[in-house]
Design a protein around this nucleic acid. Sequence first.
DNA 1: TGTAGTGTTTACCAACCGGTCAAATTATCG
DNA 2: CGATAATTTGACCGGTTGGTAAACACTACA
Lengths: 216, 216
Amino acid sequence: MVPPRAARTQRRTRIQEQKEERILEAALEVFSLHGYRGATVDQIAEVAGMSKPNLLYYFRTKEAMHRALITRVLDTWLDPLREFDAEGNPVAEFRSYIRRKLEMARDFPRESRLFANEVLRGAPNIEDELKGPLKALVDEKAAVIRAWAKAGKIVACDPYHLIFSIWSTTQHYADFDVQVRAVLGEEKADESRFDDAARFLEQLFIGGLQIRDQGS
Amino acid sequence: MVPPRAARTQRRTRIQEQKEERILEAALEVFSLHGYRGATVDQIAEVAGMSKPNLLYYFRTKEAMHRALITRVLDTWLDPLREFDAEGNPVAEFRSYIRRKLEMARDFPRESRLFANEVLRGAPNIEDELKGPLKALVDEKAAVIRAWAKAGKIVACDPYHLIFSIWSTTQHYADFDVQVRAVLGEEKADESRFDDAARFLEQLFIGGLQIRDQGS
DNA sequence: TGTAGTGTTTACCAACCGGTCAAATTATCG
DNA sequence: CGATAATTTGACCGGTTGGTAAACACTACA
């Protein structure tokens, strides 16, 4: 009788976990494609293969569904940056960070688009998380980058805008996928697209970051 | 009696032009903020300062309004790339192209977000224009860039992904404005944000493109 | 001033949407 | 098996949405 959300103090059953997983998977599919407002509960229910009231038994509102989804995505989305290691070799760290971000754009485009959709709308539901955990993490990594520059390990540059540019260039291949396809032509296979992108971005960032001839 | 759209064979009156302009301005405001589905005709009518039926007298459907808006935006959006001059100095051309794109992100963020919203949704209404005029223009400029590289004027790199990276990094400051603000902190004034971004992007792209010491 | 066309508004509608409810079905466990 | 709780469903509801009908107002011009 009592909806599972209220009974969460107890352990969740396996069936609840599975259903919630199926729902969030379907919600990701629909939200990422149509945005929050554009998605309908009926649509999500259909993709999840269950009736609307049944879906609403697990997530009482559309908003609850979206919130659960976006906080989860935001968390995994920051993993690559968390791995960014102050102790490692600077150039190697950037190289693997860029590669990880590009792989996420390739393998999890729906998550990227969900996030993009949310930020585009002004991030009404995640503003606090952006100003809190996200900002804190970026501040931390920016300090690392600045220290590297001061130590002469990489060229000096604004660490925040450097991170922004890595975010934007990599996520572009998920969020603007249709445009990229249209310009490159459909014949260009996915593999090739991402390989070319990886090669270019490495050239752009690593080439630009490495200390070489400082003249002119 | 007859709606103006059908009477378009005749010249449009001044009042029609003005009203349509007011409507498209309001539509841009609302669509860019809430996306196609999230925007309501009532909302647009209110922003435009007229009643809904009155608005629908000038644009018979919500979709017609959106289509008129997006084709116009797409057109002006490509202007900076059109100005990209094959005869000019390569480095100077890139520098001014980046600056123009960044200025557009600063001065016309709504247009950028409208476009981003559309592409995110799979560009259902502009797919043809992406594969047609857009692709043609990019192909043309890509050839120019390749020729510059072959002539040794800039370093060799994939011209398509270079253009993508300029698009994504500059538009990021319009589309992900909320995130940028959250990370940099609200105290950072707009002017400073864009100045810093301009300085960084110049360093990234121009520094990376210029021919200097080629040794590892 | 009459009238035809242009522009505007009030009232309205059918479809859709998020969400509820009560009843039915199924799983759990003594 | 019996009983209790968990899950699922069809029917439904109030509010919103895109769009329409028709009357009304304004303007230009003979």
